[in-house]
């Protein structure tokens, strides 16, 4: 690691002040599960690290009339155990299958949402868009994007919780720069970079993600289905999170379907949503939703199989949300 100056402020204001001075050379530290390895490999070399874990206002889960507010430094094991999150199985299912007790206890919600991609070209120092995408395109792209991959960005968005939170209509509270404060849908935290100057996260370095607020009307069915190769903490091959509102007769009134690990951003499938709305959930409909979700896929040379996996993830997430048997292993 390159050396850096370090601070552990106790308030948001202090943190923002620390970020404001040299935002481009400052990194925010929470659980450290991603930042510390990145710094060890010198893929990230901040001059300043601001540890936000000691900021009381960023901790904990608070239930209120509009739902819950989750502090960004709340650890995933706390989320898993929180009774306030019972209405959000889509979130808990991910954490329960995270594949590492240690990561559950160390990783924070905010940190999980802001992880850098696991793309092995990026992690091996070739840059996120290695040779304008050519490295991935002609290289080993077995884990890369099958959607939104026609530009230079071919990595997949690494967050496992973002699809669930997007399906749940969650917003994040963003503080900074300075006194400013905004609310941003989780969906809009991510973008597909078009060139090397763009990051995959839309937050500016002077901003702090402080809280996450799932927005969900009572009784919305939701679930996440991850297809994982093995039980360890490695990223899933594809995931899908689904939130469904049914009317009194069991017909889908609204649906949100979000796939993970398939595109440079968490991938919302309007096609799948359209298939679901106005119908009653059953095996055939779930199958159709899966097929619709991957219809626009443009697989690379080695990841055709991910189309099938993503399709299955969507199908099973729909079934799981509806309380039906998903089948499979």
């Amino acid at each position: 690691m390159k050396n850096f100056e370090y601070a552990a402020p106790r308030t948001e204001e202090e943190a923002l002040a620390l970020l404001a001075q040299r935002p481009d050379q400052t990194a925010v530290l929470a659980g450290g599960t991603d930042l510390v390895p990145l710094m060890k490999k010198m893929l990230v070399t901040p001059q300043r690290v601001v540890n936000i874990k000691n900021i009381d206002s960023l901790r904990g889960i608070h239930a209120h009339s509009q739902g819950v507010t989750i502090g960004a430094v709340t650890t995933l094991d706390q989320l898993l155990e929180a009774p306030e999150l019972e209405p959000y199985p889509a979130v808990k299912q991910v954490i329960a299958k995270l594949g590492s007790l240690q990561l559950q206890c160390q990783m924070t919600l905010g940190g999980e949402l802001c992880r850098r991609p696991q793309c092995w070209y990026f992690r091996n120092g070739y840059g996120l868009l290695g040779r304008r995408g050519q490295l991935v395109e002609q290289g080993d792209n077995r884990y890369h994007a099958i959607l939104d991959n026609q530009g230079p960005a071919k990595f997949v968005s690494p967050s496992r919780l973002a699809p669930a939170l997007i399906a749940l209509g969650a917003v994040v509270r963003v503080a900074g720069p300075g006194q400013q404060e905004t609310t941003v849908p989780v969906e809009r935290l991510y973008r597909t970079p078009k060139d090397d100057h763009q990051r995959e996260l839309t937050l500016s370095p002077a901003q702090l993600l402080t809280h996450v607020l799932p927005k969900l009307s009572q009784g919305t069915l939701n679930a996440t289905y991850e297809v994982k190769h093995g039980t360890g903490p490695q990223p899933p091959l594809a995931t899908a999170s689904v939130a469904l509102e049914l009317d009194g007769s069991g017909v889908v009134r609204s649906a949100r379907v979000v796939m993970g690990q398939v595109a440079p951003v968490p991938w919302r499938s309007r096609e799948a949503e359209e298939v679901l709305v106005g119908q009653r959930i059953g095996y055939e409909l779930a199958e159709l939703a899966g097929a619709a979700a991957v219809a626009p896929a443009t697989p690379l040379s080695q990841n055709q199989y991910k189309v099938q996996i993503a399709k299955t993830a969507v199908k099973r997430a729909v079934l799981l949300a509806a309380g039906l048997e998903t089948g499979g292993l």
Binding site: G99, W120, R123, Y126, D140, T231, G232
Partner: peptide, 20 residues
């Protein structure tokens, strides 16, 4: 990597092994 010969999965987060 077929082009550069880089050993792409030389860290444990990428080199898959069975868990318990």
């Amino acid at each position: 990597d077929p082009q550069t010969g880089a050993f792409l999965n030389a860290e444990l987060s990428d080199y898959l092994l069975p868990r318990l």
